[in-house]
Design a protein around this nucleic acid. Structure first.
Length: 967
RNA sequence: GCGGGUGUGGUGGAAUUGGUAGACACGCUAGAUUUAGGAUCUAGUGCUUCACGGCGUGGGAGUUCGAGUCUCCCCAUCCGCACCA
């Protein structure tokens, strides 16, 4: 019987679904193992061959763990809220839920076809109300919490209120907004309800505030920092501007230190940890307050080098700094305003693109140097960012290159406070330099000087040690339709949480998915969008009376809301009451292996760690870090194909035609052109327009880069009459380039086609065979025949003989056959442990090659082999397993046990090298002593030939390894 | 600028603690077989040389009996972050 992969695969996929083979129980005698993939956004384009890479790897791992006796949780779901479905809805009027549903159907079909061992009974969709109900619930918990720095955890707001009632907030050590005023108990108790709520917002872990946000006009929404790439939106590439808006934010900064500390406890890739560390951006230093002369104000600055304070020769404020207007003298008012306006006009992107131009303006005001009493001029300059530190710096031109450049440009003095360091060319940023000309810290190395300076600052009450973070609070509102609605209504302008027992608050229906005409978010179009506090239900917007019925929040939550806790939901996905039961959470605890892309380093992977820590603080989950180990799979890139269009215009009658030129021809023409243009200076009768590369669909091109011209012609109407200049042999060669796989680049390879042509088992093994999992690599179908051939060859081990019938012998295997099997077991287990899936595919190939050469059809070898390969090629494994007479799936068959005894050798083929270069090999008994080996090697004729009469200086013998003769 | 990764045949990639560089596969060459096949099988394939041999892991230096692997410097390339005080 031949290897009919299509039939076999369909048969077993059906079997698995029917028997719920991969359903995980929430209790078991077996140890638990949780293997998680980053769940996909179900886009309209469907899966391409790049998507399943990580899923295949995790599936291999999950299947392997089942063989090793673990109770494996391997779930899948959909991050189904998001922009594309909404954009599509705007264009077509179709409800995003409908599109999403359709896309999910396609995704599911495609995933089933690849044979993943997912427990589909736990499928989740973030856009389902039975899921987002809990997202809303977690949001309200964040609202009801604040961060206590003494306890170093989130505590209930109700406790905070008690503290305020008892003693105000002066002794409180909690994370809050900068501008939070101090008050005592009497003052607190005298505040109106609204004032109290306003103050509490300064403490809540999710809070509403006027925030400077990244506004994307084209998308009509705000974006988080990690949703912006190079100053434009990640999705669509639209420009982004800064704008102040009332927005929900998440106080992730409260968790900055714990997010940093937690990295030591998890086995995640170092580059990913580095980017999180970088993103959090902890820096140690101190705050220093400078008194402004003739003014009641002072300027606070953050500095990492308080030891250089005697080198301060000016102060610089960000143009947006609130003190600018207050301290500028009349003389400089006009110039300062002009400068402030000019910088405000420049977009963030312009400011980013242009970091070399130095600009700034003197304000006319001065501060007093806290130690020398000197007059220090206050400048404003756009090299100081309003959003970092205090938006002001103490400028030390001798110790900071930016301050140095600024000082040089505006002719400000550059005092030197370093011992024996030349600063005539540039600033000295070396932290080992010894401080000089600095009163009580002169002669000290920087580290010591910093400690002393912080002590002095604290003694004089003009500053203190401080740790600053680059991490900003995360904006949590989006002006979109297709996202989780907030369980929030507004009473007297203040946000109120809807009681959790009334959740979910369902996403309302709208006529249009666009923002309203007066600029409100899409939910502004909803007519049923008010909260009746008496009936506890959503009612018509028209019935708002602001007494009992109030307007609901118009923003929705961002994409990362649903993905910040989904891994917990899988543990108990069908719980209607809680996001997961305590029993389920305690049983599964955390993810043992998480596989996904590194592009989520500073987005999802940071936010989800933050939420998990919060849930942990509240005793809602048992562990503080939800993923013990994480692997980043590399992206599979597309190999785009290009044809070169030559727009040929005849100057005489001004006619033009489209010509496509084959790659090598084009290069030849370019060469000739260059020569013509150099010699005749454009005296040709036609206009030279050059070549435009056009993406051709990769399916029109064969493995030798030859284009099917007829298919290409029929692709687009405008190509129907195009001319083609081919190579001499009549072929048309396309250019190739590696790019991200995308529909618009026509380089997408669909896994459906591969499954149809070669089968899912081939696809799975080939994707692994392509290279190391973590590495980015271009997709190239050329090599797939190798893997497919291998599966066919393996099949023939079982279906041997001319008639190709299943024929297995009970005979005892030979030593060699056992050796091949056990060598394979050992290597495959090591490879899986190291996530080196590409090498285990090779190992299987070697095993099958060896067993084929031995004509092995022994049960004792081939039956375990079927289990060995099951994680990689489960369909063929099931089919063969069944043929051995098993009635149950191979999925939980015990993994063959490796026995060292089968690999023990009595001899070793020694490489004999001379001065480190291997010249020949010699087979010697492993029993031989060092001396015996040396004797045997020296007696060998080839040794004597190599030495050519010389006496070796030294002979290195490493028994069991190598012999090296020196001399 | 800072941080990180990568660099090995025509191609994708192998190479435990430093110990036979190029496993496995693609491609290519020759042959066998088949009515045909994107089928199967056999042999060969780093470069160079008729050959003996010589040279080979981006480049250069070093440590070592021995370096793709360790150390230092440089180059190329990709990915993050980017005026972070």
């Amino acid at each position: 019987m031949k290897y009919h992969f299509n039939e076999i695969e369909a048969k077993w996929q059906k079997y698995w679904a029917k028997n719920q083979t991969f359903k995980a129980d929430n209790s078991s005698d077996k140890p638990k193992f949780y293997v998680l993939d980053m769940f996909p956004y179900p886009s309209g384009a469907g899966l391409h061959v790049g998507h399943p890479l990580g899923y295949i790897a995790s599936d291999i791992y999950a299947r392997y763990k089942r063989h090793k006796g673990f109770n494996v949780l391997h779930p899948m779901g959909y991050d189904s809220f998001g922009l594309p479905a909404e954009q599509y809805a705007i264009q077509t009027g179709q409800h995003p839920a409908k599109t999403t549903e359709e896309n999910i159907t396609t995704y599911r079909r495609q995933m089933d076809q690849i044979g993943f061992s997912f427990d589909w009974s736990r499928e989740i969709r973030t856009s389902n109300s039975d899921y987002y109900k809990h997202t809303q619930w977690i949001f309200t918990q964040l609202f009801k919490s604040y961060y206590d720095k003494d306890e170093d955890k989130a505590l209930a707001i109700s406790d905070l209120v008690k503290t305020f009632e008892r003693e105000g907030n002066s002794n409180l050590n909690a994370v809050c907004d900068e501008e939070t005023p101090f008050f005592d108990a009497n003052q607190w108790n005298a505040f109106s309800e609204k004032e109290k709520q306003k103050i509490l917002l300064n403490y809540r872990l999710t809070f509403l505030s006027d925030t400077e946000v990244n506004w994307c006009p084209a998308l009509g929404t705000v974006l988080a920092n990690d949703e912006i790439v190079n100053g434009v939106s990640e999705r669509g590439g639209h420009p982004v501007i800064r704008k102040k808006m009332k927005q929900w934010s998440m106080r992730i900064t409260a968790y900055a230190q714990r997010l940093l500390d937690g990295l030591d406890k998890i086995d995640w890739p170092q580059p990913l940890k580095d980017s999180q560390t970088n993103w959090i951006g902890r820096s140690e230093g101190s705050m220093v307050r400078f008194k402004i002369q003739n003014s009641k104000f002072s300027i606070s600055v953050f500095t990492t080098r308080p030891d250089t304070i005697f080198g301060v020769s000016f102060m610089t404020l960000a143009p947006e700094h609130e003190l600018v207007a207050k301290i500028t003298t009349n003389e400089y008012k006009e110039a300062v305003e002009k400068y402030v306006q000019a910088t405000a006009k420049r977009s963030e992107r312009d400011r980013m693109a242009d970091v070399k131009t130095i600009s700034g303006q003197f304000t006319g005001a001065y501060v007093e140097h806290p130690f020398t009493g000197e007059q220090i001029p206050i400048w404003i300059g756009d090299y100081v960012l309003a959003s970092y530190g205090t938006g002001a710096v103490m400028a030390v031109p001798c110790g900071d290159q930016r301050d140095y450049d600024f000082a040089k440009h505006f002719d400000i003095p550059i005092p030197n406070i370093f011992q024996d360091i030349d600063i005539s060319e540039h600033a000295c940023e070396d932290k080992t330099a010894v401080i000089a000309n600095s009163d009580f810290i002169s002669g000290m190395p920087a580290k010591k000087a910093m400690k002393r300076m912080i002590y002095e600052l604290e003694q004089r009450n003009i500053g203190e040690g401080k740790i600053n973070y680059r991490l900003r609070d995360a904006v949590f509102s989006r002006q979109r339709y297709w996202g989780e609605p907030f369980p929030v209504y507004y009473k007297d302008g203040m946000p109120q949480m809807i009681d959790t027992k009334h959740l979910p608050i369902l996403l309302p229906e709208v006529e249009k998915y666009l923002p309203t005409e007066d600029g409100k978010p899409p939910l502004g179009n909803a007519t049923q969008w008010a909260w009746d506090t008496k009936k506890s239900t959503v009612v018509s917007l028209q019935s708002v009376d602001n007494k009992m019925i109030f307007p609901l929040e118009l923003n929705t939550m961002p994409g990362w809301a649903g993905s910040s806790w989904y891994f917990n939901r899988y543990m108990d996905a069908n719980n209607t009451d809680k996001f997961a039961s305590q029993e389920a959470l305690n049983y599964w605890k955390d993810v043992d292996l998480y596989i996904g892309g590194s592009e989520h380093a500073t987005g999802h992977l940071l936010y989800s760690r933050f939420w998990q820590k919060f849930l942990f603080d509240k005793g809602l989950v048992p562990v503080e870090e939800y993923a013990k180990k994480l692997i980043n799979q590399g992206m599979i890139l597309g190999t785009s194909a290009f044809v070169y269009r030559w727009e040929y215009t005849d100057v005489r009658d001004n006619t033009s035609e489209t010509i496509f030129v084959s790659k090598n021809k084009m290069e030849q023409i370019i060469k000739e052109r260059t020569i013509i243009e150099q010699s005749k200076k454009n005296k040709t009768k036609d206009k030279w327009s050059g070549f435009t590369p056009i993406h051709a669909d990769v399916s029109f091109v064969n493995a030798s880069n030859e284009l099917d011209i007829e298919v290409f012609k029929n692709w687009r109407d405008e190509y129907k009459n195009a001319k083609f200049i081919t190579e001499e042999d009549g072929t048309f060669i396309v250019g190739r380039e590696v790019e991200k796989m995308s529909k618009s680049k026509y380089n997408v390879v669909n896994p459906d086609d591969i499954c149809h042509d070669y089968g899912a088992d081939t696809l799975r093994m080939y994707e692994m065979f392509l290279g190391p999992l973590e590495q980015a690599k271009p997709w190239n179908t050329a090599g797939i025949t190798g893997v497919h051939g291998f599966l066919k060859k393996m099949w023939r081990l079982y279906y041997s003989g001319k008639e190709e019938s299943f024929s297995i012998s009970d005979e005892e295997p030979t030593k060699e056959e056992y050796k091949t099997l056990h060598k394979t077991i050992k290597k495959v287990e090591e490879d899986i442990a190291n996530f080196s899936f590409n090498t285990s595919v090779s190992t299987f190939m070697i095993a099958v090659n060896e067993l084929s050469a031995l004509k092995c059809n022994k049960l004792a070898i081939l039956e375990p082999l079927a289990i060995l390969i099951e994680p990689y090629a489960p369909h063929i494994a099931e089919e063969l397993w069944e043929k051995f007479g098993h009635k149950e799936s191979v999925a939980t068959a015990i993994f063959p046990v490796f026995k060292e005894t089968y690999l023990v050798e009595s001899t070793k083929v020694y490489p004999i090298s001379f001065n480190g270069k291997m010249r020949f090999t010699m087979e010697l008994s492993l029993d031989l002593s060092r001396e015996d080996i040396e004797k045997a090697v020296m007696a060998h004729e080839k040794t004597q030939k190599q030495l050519a009469g010389r006496t070796p200086k030294k002979v290195i013998v490493v028994p069991g390894k190598i012999v090296n003769i020196v001399g």
